[in-house]
Simulated assay, not measured.
Amino acid sequence: MWFDHDVVCDNTPGELRLQTYPTSPVVSMLLSRRSWFVCWKTGDPPPGGNNFYYYTQGDVIVDRPGAKGWGYLPGHLLHVDGHPAPGVPKCRWA
């Protein structure tokens, strides 16, 4: 898979999930507080969150090594003015 650009945003570190729902397997951890995101899609909101999720590659792989750390960060962990985050395209497969 390839992406034509990314957007860097401030964020709260957290778990990246394989799919866009709160019980999806955690594939990696995002440790940084400023990260790049290549696209977004909607899903089931986690407790206290919204239904936006942002796709990126995590810093530490914890499961499913074939995914190479790629997963979805819940949108409420991005520090942006609104969703979808400005400049971040919708995932082509969404």
Rank of each mutant, 00 (worst) to 15 (best):
23 T>M: 04
51 N>W: 00
74 P>L: 00
66 G>V: 08
77 L>P: 00
62 V>A: 10
48 G>V: 01
72 Y>G: 04
87 G>C: 04
33 R>N: 00
24 S>K: 15
55 Y>W: 15
94 A>K: 03
71 G>D: 11
31 L>R: 11
31 L>E: 10
56 T>A: 06
86 P>M: 04
61 I>F: 09
75 G>Y: 04
35 S>I: 01
51 N>T: 01
27 V>A: 14
43 G>F: 06
33 R>A: 00
54 Y>G: 01
81 D>I: 05
58 G>D: 06
25 P>D: 15
73 L>N: 00
20 T>F: 09
67 A>C: 05
89 P>L: 06
39 C>I: 07
60 V>C: 14
55 Y>V: 02
83 H>R: 04
48 G>S: 03
39 C>S: 09
59 D>T: 14
32 S>R: 14
87 G>K: 08
46 P>Y: 01
35 S>H: 12
20 T>G: 11
69 G>E: 12
26 V>W: 09
93 W>N: 13
47 P>H: 05
86 P>D: 12
34 R>Y: 07
61 I>H: 09
53 Y>R: 04
54 Y>K: 05
51 N>K: 06
87 G>Q: 13
23 T>G: 00
44 D>W: 06
71 G>S: 11
61 I>Y: 08
66 G>W: 15
26 V>G: 12
79 H>R: 15
27 V>G: 13
60 V>W: 15
87 G>I: 03
58 G>A: 02
37 F>C: 00
23 T>F: 07
79 H>E: 12
46 P>G: 01
83 H>F: 13
89 P>R: 09
41 K>H: 08
87 G>Y: 10
35 S>G: 07
64 R>K: 13
50 N>Q: 06
32 S>G: 10
76 H>I: 03
22 P>Y: 04
80 V>G: 07
60 V>M: 15
52 F>P: 03
23 T>N: 05
28 S>W: 07
60 V>F: 14
85 A>P: 04
